[in-house]
Every structure is written in C-alpha cells, then in structure tokens.
C-alpha cells in the first residue's frame, strides 16, 4: 500500500447513530485531503478512529503500510501520526514554549530522566522555539497557554502537532472560531505544509477547503457520498443536494 494513511471498511456506530459506515480513505504523501460534511456527519469520529482514540466496530487502519488497527494512540504517534482537536487541546498550566518543548520531548523518546532539569534544555527548547517562530507566535513563548486567545491556541496546537515531526497530520477544524487575519495565516501555513506532511483536513470553511485540498471526501451520516478532486466534488449533484446547497449549514 503506497498511501501514508489508509482506512479500509471503517465502521463505527454509537447506539443507533451511525458515525462511520464502510469507509475507505487515504492520505498520500504531499497531499491535503479534505474531509467535509454537515454537523454530526461523523468527521471527528473518523479522526478518532484513525488516531486510535476510538475503536472501530469493523475495518482496518494502516499507517505507512503497517496495520495499526489495534495500536494505542501513543504508538501511532510514534509511527508518524499527529493530530489537532476540534476543541482546542493544550496544556493550560504550561507556558507556550513548554507546550511545544514537551512535544519535542515526546519525539525524542527520552522522558524517563529523573534528575536533570527539563528546562533550560536547549535540545528541547531550541527546536520548540524554532517552531514558534515559524508559526509566528514566538512573542508568546512565555505566556501560560491558558491565557491565549482562541486563534493563538490553534496555532500553538499546530506547533505541538508539528513538533512530533509527523508524516500525516489529522486536523479537526483548525480554522473554526479563528479571526480572518489568523485564518489567512493558517491557510498559508497549511499550504506550505503540504510539502513535508500529508494532511487530512476536516474543515467547515469552504473557501479554505477549496483553496487547499487536493482531494475532497464528502461525509454524510458516516457514508462517503463523493470523493475526488475539488472540481469534480463541487459539481457532484449529490453533494450539492446534501451539503453545499444547504444554506442552513454554516
């Protein structure tokens, strides 16, 4: 299997609610694959299944060709999977720099060290600081993460995800609730990311999706009703009926 990340026949229900049904999905190297669909379609659930937070009822997950269906979250991370969450998820009592430094520490795989202080430690803090600079939030390095504005926290989350040098990144609505200027910056950053990491992008902002995505899969009630290049998906009558045409969605 050549895809970085692949799901085969993935299925998950919560009682009567079908959140994923017989879903096939791939993320190739160098591509941004967007997963869109109305609220409650099952997008976050799919990310949970791929990252290992949820167990699928059926189906298999492969990471770089290796089956990881039963691997726990941390093992998948070690194999190159990173993610951000729909509701921002950082370490609130840590500073911004520490948040990224601990992500670097996770990658280094050397955390059973009991004596030497974790800070200052240039081996952790220099790569962390470089990432902050890259995302343009280095000025916030000392601020406790709990005190960040929403958009800043999304950037921090991205920095943390990148710190583990993932091969595939799962992003759950990175633009939700972000101001337009920051959204602009995030879109640019994501566009540049394409070169180094495959991305599975869940996003409601259609402008961004069509600007970024190489491929789009449309999820409705856990089923992929369409999948293909943006131009094809945009023209798909099923999609227009089920989703794009529906103005009640945001």
């Amino acid at each position: 299997m050549s895809a970085l990340l692949a799901a085969r026949g993935l299925a998950k229900s919560f009682g009567a609610v079908v959140a994923a049904a017989d879903l096939d999905l791939e993320v190739e190297a160098g591509e941004i694959h967007a997963l869109i669909g109305p609220n409650g379609a099952g997008k976050t659930t799919v990310l949970g299944l791929l990252s290992g937070e949820l167990r699928p009822d059926r189906g298999r997950v492969f990471l770089s060709g290796r089956e990881v269906t039963h691997a726990p979250v941390h093992e998948r991370v070690r194999l190159g999977l990173g993610r951000t969450f729909q509701l921002s998820c950082v370490l609130p009592s840590f500073s911004v720099l520490e948040n990224v430094a601990i992500a670097v520490q996770a990658r280094e795989g050397s955390s059973f060290r009991f004596w030497k202080p974790a800070s200052p430690d240039p081996r952790l803090e220099e790569p962390a600081f470089a990432l902050l600079e890259r995302l343009g939030i280095d000025a916030l390095a000392d601020r406790p993460a709990a005190m960040l504005a929403h958009g800043e926290r999304r950037l921090l989350e991205l920095a943390m995800a990148l710190a583990s040098r993932p091969k595939v990144l799962l992003l759950d609505e990175p633009l939700a609730g972000v101001g337009s200027k920051e959204a602009q910056r995030l879109v640019e950053i994501l566009a540049r990311l394409r070169a180094e990491v495959g991305v599975l992008l869940v996003e409601h902002d259609m402008d961004a999706v069509f600007r970024l995505a190489d491929r789009i899969t449309v999820l409705v009630n856990g089923r992929a009703i369409a999948s293909g290049p943006p131009s094809v998906v945009r023209a798909d009558p099923l999609v227009r009926a089920a989703y794009l045409g529906d103005d009640s969605e945001r």
Binding site: V73, V90, S93, F94, A118
Partner: peptide, 29 residues
C-alpha cells in the same frame, strides 16, 4: 524536587493538565 523539574516530572504534570493531549503527543501516560 529534582524529579519534579525533570523531563519525567514534566510528563507527569502534563498528564495531570490534559491527559488526552499527552497521549496525542505520543506519551504512554
């Protein structure tokens, strides 16, 4: 006190703060 400020201690504090995040970073909490 050394342990608390060490890498190990930092992982413990991180997991206290947000266990889910730590798992997603790759820590076997």
């Amino acid at each position: 006190a050394r342990l608390s400020a060490s890498r190990f201690g930092r992982v413990l504090r991180g997991a206290k703060d947000n266990e889910r995040r730590m798992a997603a970073l790759g820590f076997a909490v």
